[in-house]
């Protein structure tokens, strides 16, 4: 029983962080219908930015953190304005290839700027683990979870209530109608890329704080992909629940099965669940069912 509780709690904590990164995918997809395969690299850049501001320029944590968000917003904006805007109306596969190419470019840039060596943030949180009853949570994971959840709530509130959020939902629903309502759809695209990049970069900072930073940090984006598909590409609530499911499945399956089969289950389990769920709900748990009216 103890071990299950421990695994569940770790799963939820990791899942919260996954949820935030999944939002990076969802926000961009919702507004622009583009799956950003460079989301993992946005995370990696976010982590390196924090490293740069804190270690190389010696800023305190909070201003550095805010600068990371500004930097990520700028990165998202640049990518949209300089590259994706010109891809409007091109086939989906071309746009997907562009984002995959972008991920390689960002990774190469990171190696050039920060070299390939392993880096760490200075300690951001008190080192002592959080202990509740028999359950122990590593301090970095606990605080990472808290920050991720706060960010997820802020994003959800923006989408639900702020005028920009409503405009983004409208754009996602019907671009021509959104234009006709006086919504500047191009600005909404830019904004979606900025917000998506911020979500990814914050996720990257949290992951980097837990596991250290290197140019391949973005590969975790691959783990997040089941989260996004599971929840439905265009659902914020789905991203959150998908995040928790994947976090829990990963930890519980890994915890029980790894000792038996000798490891590796943690990496596979989310994909098994993904395939199973997609068999029954091809549009994800909460995704929009595309109804064609004839």
């Amino acid at each position: 029983m103890d071990i299950l509780g421990q695994l569940l709690v770790s799963g939820i904590a990791v899942g919260g962080v996954y949820a935030l990164i999944a939002l990076g995918f969802v926000i961009i997809y919702k507004a622009t219908s583009i799956i950003n395969f460079a989301t993992g690299e946005f995370m990696m850049i976010g982590a390196y930015l924090l490293y740069t501001f804190m270690v190389m320029t010696g800023l305190p944590a909070i201003p550095a953190f805010l600068l990371v968000m500004a930097g990520a917003a700028l990165l998202g904006m640049l990518v949209e304005r300089a590259i994706l805007r010109h891809m409007l109306g091109q086939p989906t596969i071309s746009i997907v290839m562009v984002t995959i190419g972008l991920s390689s470019i960002l990774m190469g840039l990171a190696e050039l700027i920060w070299s390939t060596g392993f880096k760490n943030f200075p300690p951001l949180f008190p080192r002592a683990p959080i202990i509740v009853g028999d359950i122990i949570i590593r301090s970095n994971l606990f605080w990472g979870f808290v920050i991720a959840m706060a960010a997820v709530i802020v994003f959800a509130l923006i989408f639900k209530y702020a005028k920009v959020g409503v405009a983004m939902r409208a754009t996602a629903d019907d671009q021509m109608a959104a234009f006709s309502m006086g919504i500047n759809v191009r600005n909404i695209f830019t904004l979606a890329w900025s917000l998506g990049a911020i979500a990814a970069a914050l996720g990257g900072v949290i992951i980097g704080n837990i596991g250290g930073i290197q140019p391949t940090l973005g590969h975790i984006g691959l783990t997040i992909f089941p989260v996004v598909i599971l929840g439905g590409l265009d659902s914020i609530g789905g991203a959150v629940i998908g995040g928790f499911i994947v976090g829990i499945v990963e930890n519980v399956a890994g915890g029980y099965l790894d000792p038996i089969v000798g490891g590796g289950v943690k990496a596979i389990a989310p994909f098994v669940v993904l395939v199973l769920i997609l068999l029954f709900r091809p549009y994800g748990l909460f995704g929009k069912e595309d109804i064609e009216r004839l």
């Binding site: 409503v166 939902r169 409208a170 996602a172 629903d173 019907d174 021509m176 109608a177 959104a178 006709s180 929009k288």
Partner: peptide, 12 residues
């Protein structure tokens, strides 16, 4: 403008 094929924001 109103549209030939209804262009409401369906999720709202």
């Amino acid at each position: 403008r109103t549209f030939q094929n209804i262009a409401l924001f369906r999720g709202m």
